[in-house]
């Protein structure tokens, strides 16, 4: 499989997972949250600082439909990660010698 096709296929899988699959993910607390609750330090968690992001808690501000709200936040998160990560790695890469 060529580079571009492989990358696009991988990105499509990531977008589908975040945009569609995440709706079907377990909503139970994760391991740390569960252990914190059970052993009695769960209440020491503070509410997260409001950074003004419209995607807090993987929901999209102003979108009422659960499936759409989570899906848009997921796709936005994948996009932001790709943009920041991809930009960083592209800037860091060794340049091929020109010959």
């Amino acid at each position: 499989m060529r580079n571009r096709r492989f990358l696009l296929a991988g990105l499509l899988v990531a977008l589908l997972l975040a945009g569609v699959g995440s709706y079907y993910a377990s909503s139970h607390p994760d391991g740390l949250e569960y252990v914190a609750g059970k052993t009695g330090f769960g209440d020491s968690a503070k509410d997260p600082v409001d950074t003004g992001s419209p995607f807090a808690d993987y929901e999209t501000l102003g979108v009422d439909n659960d499936r759409l709200s989570g899906g848009v936040a997921g796709v936005a998160g994948v996009g932001l990660t790709l943009l920041i990560g991809g930009g960083l790695f592209w800037a860091l890469r060794r340049r091929e010698p020109q010959d």
Partner: peptide, 18 residues
């Protein structure tokens, strides 16, 4: 480098799937 960007995006997506 593009592969690394994809891996970061994929991990973000994977972390949403509890």
């Amino acid at each position: 480098a593009p592969m690394a960007g994809l891996v970061a995006a994929f991990v973000f997506a994977g972390q949403m799937i509890n």
